[in-house]
Write a protein that binds this DNA or RNA. Structure first.
Ligand SMILES: [Mn+2]
Ligand SMILES: [Mn+2]
Ligand SMILES: [Mn+2]
Ligand SMILES: [Mn+2]
Lengths: 221, 221
DNA sequence: TTAATTTTTTAGATTTGTCTAAAAATAATT
DNA sequence: AATTATTTTTAGACAAATCTAAAAAATTAA
C-alpha cells in the first residue's frame, strides 16, 4: 500500500521514528514539541495516520509507527541523509549547513532519483554527521557507539556521530577540531557541572559541557 | 520584497512566464488549461498574486507578470533547468525522464544550494532540451533559432532545442537519432498533411509530422 | 481514595488552494 | 443594435493542516 504522503505526513512520520529511537513509545506532547506544532494538531494527524495504517494509535494511551509507517520513515530518512552526503561531498557544504536544505530535498520522492543518487555517490553508509543511511531495502548499518559522556577516563575513542543538528553546535565542534573520525580521550570530569576535559589526539585539550558530551557518540578503540 | 512563495504560487508564476513567451498577454482559460486547474481557481490566485505585486492584473481584461514576478519566474526556471542538467549529466537520466523530477526539485528554494549546484555543474548555459539556463542574476543566453517546420528545403541546420516536455515525443526523437546538436536538412514537404521528410546527417531519412517539426527548433548553418 | 495537576482529545475557527454553479462582463453573430 | 455565445469573475462549499479554548481522561499528590 504505497500511499502518497503529504509533506506534513512525512514530517510527522519521520519525527515519530526519531522519538521512538530514544523511548519505547511516544507522547503527544513530545511529538508536538519536536515538530513545532500544538498537541491538538498532533492528535488530528494521528487519527489520519491511523486510518492510513501508518501508526498504531490508542487514544489517551500511546502510539507507535506500524510496520508500514516504519518503512515509510526509513525511506524519508534515506533521502535526507543521501542528500546531506551529496551536499557535503559534492557541493562543498559544511556539515552544519546541510540539515536545513535536506529537510526540503527529502520530500522529493522519486525512487529512481534516490537510487541513482545513491549509486552516483557510491552507496555511502553514513551521512556527514555519522548517521547510517538506510539502503534501498530500508536496511541500516548499525554501529556500536556510546555517548562520549559515558566514556571511561583515559580511554582512546573515535567519534562516530553527533546526535544533534543544531548548526551552532556543529560549527563549534568543527572549530574545536571535532568531527566524525576524530580520536580523543576524556582526561577529567568536573563534579561541579559534569563538564568533561577532553584531549583531542595531536591537539590541545578543551572542556565541553555535559549536554555536548551526550550529543557526541564514540566508539572506544 | 523577497516573499516566500508557496509551491502553488510558484507553479502559477512559472506557467504565466511560459505562456507570455508565445503571446503578449495571457488569458485565464489558457492558464487554467496549462496548469490543469479551473478558471475560477486561476482568478482566485491572480488576486493573491496581485496583492503580492507579482502580476499586473486588470480583471476581465488581461494580466502579465510584474518585474518582480518575472524575476521570481526566472529563479524557478533556473532551478528547474539546472536540476535537469544535473539529472542527465551526473545521474545518467535520459532527457525524457527529467522533467517530471525537476518539477519537484525546482521548489527547493535555497539560494546557496542552487548557486553551488550551478558551480558544481560548471555553469551550464543550456538544459538537456536546449533551453537556456538563467544565471544567478536572471540573465538568459538567448540563441537564434527557428522551428524546423520553417526551415527552407535542403538547408543544413543544427538542432538547438525541443519545445515540448512530452516524454513520448522526446524518446521518439532520441530513438530516431534526433537530439540537441544533431545536424539535418529538410528534403521534402508533403502538401497532404504538411509532414516533412528530413535527412539526418550520416543517417537515414524519416518523416515527421507538422506538430513535431514545430516543436523542434533549429539554427541554420 | 479523593483532589489537584498534567496530558490528551474534542469542538469550533482559520488559512490555503481548490471546486461547482451562477452571475457579470466581454466578444461574436445575426 | 440586439441577440447569442464565450470568457471571466463571484458566491459558496470543501479538504488539508493548523490553531485556541474547553472538556475529558490519566496521572500525581495529598
Ligand atoms: Mn539532518
Ligand atoms: Mn545528518
Ligand atoms: Mn522541464
Ligand atoms: Mn528542459
Amino acid at each position: 500500500m504505497l500511499t502518497n504522503l503529504s509533506v506534513s505526513e512525512q514530517n510527522y512520520i519521520k519525527s515519530i521514528y526519531h522519538l521512538q529511537q530514544n523511548s519505547e513509545s511516544v507522547t503527544t506532547n513530545a511529538l508536538a514539541g519536536h515538530i513545532k506544532t500544538k498537541p491538538a494538531s498532533v492528535t488530528d494527524m494521528l487519527k489520519k495516520l491511523q486510518t492510513k495504517n501508518l501508526v498504531n494509535y490508542n487514544p489517551y494511551k500511546s502510539f507507535r509507527l506500524s510496520r508500514e509507517g516504519n518503512k515509510a520513515a526509513l525511506n524519508i530518512i534515506r533521502r535526507h541523509r543521501l542528500w546531506e552526503f551529496f551536499l557535503v561531498n559534492q557541493l562543498q557544504f559544511t556539515w552544519e549547513e546541510v540539515h536545513e536544505v535536506a529537510e526540503q530535498l527529502e520530500h522529493v520522492t522519486s525512487k529512481k532519483l534516490v537510487d541513482k543518487l545513491d549509486a552516483f555517490l557510491g552507496y555511502p553508509g553514513f551521512d556527514p554527521h555519522g548517521d547510517p543511511i538506510p539502503n534501498s531495502n530500508g536496511k541500516i548499518n548499525q554501529q556500536v557507539q556510546m555517548p562520549l559522556f559515558n566514556l571511561p577516563l583515559n580511554t582512546l575513542a573515535i567519534i562516530t556521530s553527533v546526535q544533534n543538528q543544531s548548526s551552532d553546535l556543529l560549527s563549534f565542534l568543527s572549530n574545536s577540531g571535532i568531527t566524525i573520525g576524530t580520536k580523543l580521550e576524556v582526561k577529567q570530569k568536573l563534579n561541579f557541572d559534569n563538564s568533561l576535559g577532553i584531549k583531542i589526539k595531536n591537539k590541545s585539550s578543551i572542556f565541553i559541557s555535559e549536554q555536548i558530551a551526550n550529543a557526541i557518540q564514540v566508539n572506544p578503540l
